[in-house]
Every structure is written in C-alpha cells, then in structure tokens.
Write a protein that binds this DNA or RNA. Sequence first.
DNA 1: CTGAAAGCGCTTACAG
DNA 2: CTGAAAGCGCTTACAG
Lengths: 342, 342
Amino acid sequence: MTNPPLSRKRATGRCTLSDVARLAGVSAITASRALRGIRGVDAELADRVRAAAKQLNYVPDPAAQALASARSNNVAVLIPLLTNALFVELLEAVQRKLMPAGFQTLIGVTHYHPDEEEALLQSYLAHRPAGLLVTGLDRNESARNMIAESGVPCVHLMETTVAAGMYSVGLSQHDAARTLTEHLLAQGRRRIAYVAGQLDPRVLQRRSGYEAALRQAGCYDASLEILDPTPTSMALGGRLFERVLKAHPDVDAIFFCNDDLAQGGLLAALRMKVAVPGQVAIVGFNDLAGSDQMLPPLTTIRTPRAEIGTQAASMLLALIRGETVATPTVDVGFELVVRQSA
Amino acid sequence: MTNPPLSRKRATGRCTLSDVARLAGVSAITASRALRGIRGVDAELADRVRAAAKQLNYVPDPAAQALASARSNNVAVLIPLLTNALFVELLEAVQRKLMPAGFQTLIGVTHYHPDEEEALLQSYLAHRPAGLLVTGLDRNESARNMIAESGVPCVHLMETTVAAGMYSVGLSQHDAARTLTEHLLAQGRRRIAYVAGQLDPRVLQRRSGYEAALRQAGCYDASLEILDPTPTSMALGGRLFERVLKAHPDVDAIFFCNDDLAQGGLLAALRMKVAVPGQVAIVGFNDLAGSDQMLPPLTTIRTPRAEIGTQAASMLLALIRGETVATPTVDVGFELVVRQSA
DNA sequence: CTGAAAGCGCTTACAG
DNA sequence: CTGAAAGCGCTTACAG
C-alpha cells in the first residue's frame, strides 16, 4: 500500500475554507461570507459554518485574504525610537485599541532617519496595510508622496499643526514648553538654560516655546541654549548639567528637553552638592517613569501619550471604515506637574 | 471617448511581475527567478530584468509571494513587555540582524499572559512566518504544541536549559544571581534580603540562585524574601525598600531582582537617609540605563541582551536556511559589575 | 439568499 | 537555460 503520488499537489496541509464549507455543506463563498459576518447569509447556514470552522480549528490565510481582497488587517506604525519610554507607552495604547478591532500592528523604528523611514514605508506599503500611523510631520517629499499615493489612511502622531487633508493627534510642544518656562519665570528665575539632546523637531519646537517665554520676559540669552545632537540619556543629562554650571555659574534654572536628561541632571546635582531648587531649579519634559521618585521629585510637563495612541487609533479606525472625521486635528493638551525641583 | 469597461478587471493598479517581464522581454517565471537571484538565469537576461524592475519601481507583493511559496519573510518575535528596557534592547539587536537578511519582524507583546501569548502565536503562525523567536521556556502545552506542529524554526531567548530538539540563547539566571549573592557575602553581609516584583520564571530562577548561595553560607532566611507580583518600577522599589527596612531593621544588604527596583531603592535610601552601602548594601540585576548614574552607582549583573538578540537571530537564520546548528544552546554568560552600592 | 467562475500576483513542478 | 500550465487560498463580480 503506497501513498498515491503527491507530486502534483501543493497543498500546505492546513485546513482551508473549502474544508470548512464542505463540512458545513455549503459553498466556499457562503462560508467566506458567514465567517466574515456579511449580512444576507441564512442564519442557520451561518451557524453551521461557524461550527465547522471551530471544529476544524480553521484560521484564514492572511496572505490569501490580502491577495484576493487587496486589503490586509495590518496597520503599520512608524516611531523614531523604542528606547524612549514615551513611544513605548504610545504604542501600547495603539495596540490596545487596534487589536480588539481585528488589526495587527507592524512596528517600524526609524531611528530619526529619513532614509530608514522611507525604506520602512516602502516595505510596509507593499503589504497593503489598512492604515498608517506615523510620528510627527517631518519627512522628506518622497516619503510624503508615497503615503499620499498609496491612498492608505494615515494619522500623524504627537503634533497638531497639519495641512489640509491630513490627520493628526498630538499636542502643542511649543505651548507646553512655554507654559513650563513661564512657571520658572513665575518662581523668579531669570537665567534659564535650555538643555537638549536628540534634536528632533519636537525638541526644537519646545526650544522655540522656551525662547518665546523668555523673550517676552526680556531675559532670553541664546548662549544659554545647549543643543547636543546625541540621543538623550541620564548619563548625558549629568554631563550637560556639569557643563552648563561650569560655563554659566550664574544659571538659576535648567529646562531639560526630556525627563531622562533631567533625572541625570538631578543626580549630578546631588553628586556635586548643588542645591535644587535652592541654587538651580530643574524641570524636565514628558513625566517619564521615575521622575516622581527623584530627589527632589521632578517638576515637568505630563504629555498624555496613552491618550494620543488611543485617539489616533480611533481616528484611524474611522478612516479605515470610510467615515468622515469631523475634527482631523485633535489636541490632547498637556499638564504642568509641579513637584519640588522647581 | 469613454474608457473601456473595467468592471471585469480587479487589477490593483500596482506594477506587477508581468509588467517587469514584458518590459524585459522575458517570461514572468524568468523575471521571478532573476529577481530572486536564482542561479541558472542568463546573466544578460537577469540584467535586463533587474533594470526593468528598477525602471518600473517594482515591489513584489508579499501576499502573493507568501501564498505561492507557502513561506513569508516575516519573523515573529514574542516578548513579555515593551516597558522593560531589557527587551527593547534585545529587540533592536534582533532587528539589526534580521532586516539586512531580508526579514521583517512581527513584534508581539504577551504581558506575561499565557493566553495572550497563545493568541499571538495563533495569529502569527497563520502568517506562515519563516521563523519564531520567543522569550523563555515557560508556556502552556497548547502553545508548545502549536510551535512544534507548525514546523517553523524557533529559538528561545534569555534562558539556557532546553529540551532535545529545542534551540536557545541566554544565560543562567540562577548562576548570575548566585555570583551576585556571593559578592555580598564576600563583603561580610549576612542578612541579605531578596526583593522582587513581576514574578516571572527568570525572577524566580534568580531567587533560587540567591537561596543556594545563602544556604551554602548558612544564612538563608526565607522571611527575607519579599516577592511582589506587581510589575517592577522605581516607585515599587522605593516602597519595597521602606517595607523591608521597617520589617527587618537588621537587614544589611538587599538584592533587587531588577535594576529599576534597585534604582528606586537607592533613591528611597537617600530620602530616608539610610547609608548605602554603610548600613545597607544594594545590588540590582541587568545593568539598565541610569544605574551607573545613581548615588552611589549601582552594583549589578550585566546581562548581554544585545548579544542574545544577535546570536539568537543568527541561529534562527541558520535554521531557516536549513542548516544544522551545532550548538543548539548558547550561553552568553554575564558580568558582575561592582560599583559603589555594594 | 446562494453559488460557479474568474482572478488577485506570485511560485512550483514539469517539460523541453 | 527558459517557459506554459497549474495552483496557493481566498474574495470579487456576476448571475440566478
């Protein structure tokens, strides 16, 4: 008893839609419709199909679905970095919203590199994603065109100003930084440094909010801006803190562009026995994990990234369904969190 | 001049392999072979095909490729958490290795939930991934069977002990913890607490290494083990530090199962004016960002997660190619980093 | 409400 | 070394 020749067959062995249809005693198309919950299938037949699918442990082949329907259940999400807790929390919120809706996320990390972003975009777009979530508005023309020409619904994360026909969920980095700087001014600080790493567009928007507040108060001094292109870290914050105090002993406050820098600055102050906020007030940005544990606890801006993720995902879902989105630009705001460092 | 009726057509408008083949003046199969770099295509034809593809900006349809070949260029990676920097660094290393080899990573976050892991596994396996990377060895039978039955090459991350026919890259959590505990003993510490959150298998393996060292020294005391199921964080570390000192004022060292807890403990000590290491020595585990910035800098175990990612990805690549892997279990080791907290 | 036919864009298995 | 045919597992577009 030899097996029949299989050379001609290419079946993969997995259970297919026709298997389900056969077991349910209907055609493949009816099974497909029943499983997709398309109205207009006899209720009893639909039940039989679902039961058959369950019994056979049927899982549809995503590749076949994508090929036949020219759509997929993927949503591509492009973020700059995974090593910044901000984006991780954003991502988690996005997934919590998208997964129950039946979508899978393809996560792409651009490392703030336009070329990497373009490559990821090309590769992900080839997968016919149902939607696209990208960070910020800064990208080269080629990338912008790829998005536009793909026709894939796209929501921009983190920022608010957007051109016509674009969608975004974020907050005004400028206004938040301005509010924070005004808080320092209200405490009587006048020699306020802006210390930044990882000079991405949002970091520069914060800088401009800082400048606006200081100009209005008449105490803007460009030499107090320390802009370092290195990725942010606690270690960098410590180093920059030392550098600022050495170069400008009269500084009475430091605005770190991100909480990790500020945490490093706070620890350096402790090490150097610089009184905070006595001699120097310190503020951060984003309210990351640990900032409330510092000594003294860090005054900062809380950015609602989970809400950004949730709202952006909802908006994208609406766009995917073809609905009209009434407010294409959602501003989720920010919160000044005053603790003891300033 | 009306357009010809298109109702019958389902073409998606994108440029296909036949377009490339036509432009190059060859058949689709030859074009396919040329583009895939399959030997046995006339060099001149292959050149023409590549030129045509470039000219048309041809990007192959991954869905069609997957359907026709029953394989994809996806590698699914399952990790417990994205909020633990350890896994993020692991992931980055994996991607750095896999992307240049032409593979895309599907990242799944299990949140330490067997059910979530099973659901992700089912969904990812449906995509016929070329390979699978999973964290740890602890999973229910159903998940293990899914992996085995899928026939997809799989490498286990983080741990070393593995059954026959399985592959893994990691380190002995037990031995690392034991080494660290012995360091504390060598400093003359005897009342050493083990403080843990997020009681995953690796945290428990560390506990057993800790216990082994203490038993051998004759000073194991089970009441000094504080096991809290909550996810780890600096805030939790601070709270547990207080709790330990209150309940056991005679404790002379604390082994925190993860650096974020230890960092929180260190800051709590500063707040409570408990001398470290004078009154209490503190050690962490993993050597995460910021630990070297603490006051005092944290003594800890450096776990080479980037190397785990790189090696696991290489091993997986070999398995995908069908090669025999000589050492199915790679132990990347660990490093005791003695700083000033112990 | 249901189904037979055709097709999505590739690759496999043959044949030459 | 090259190609015509068939097929991967679904869904679309028609027809009834």
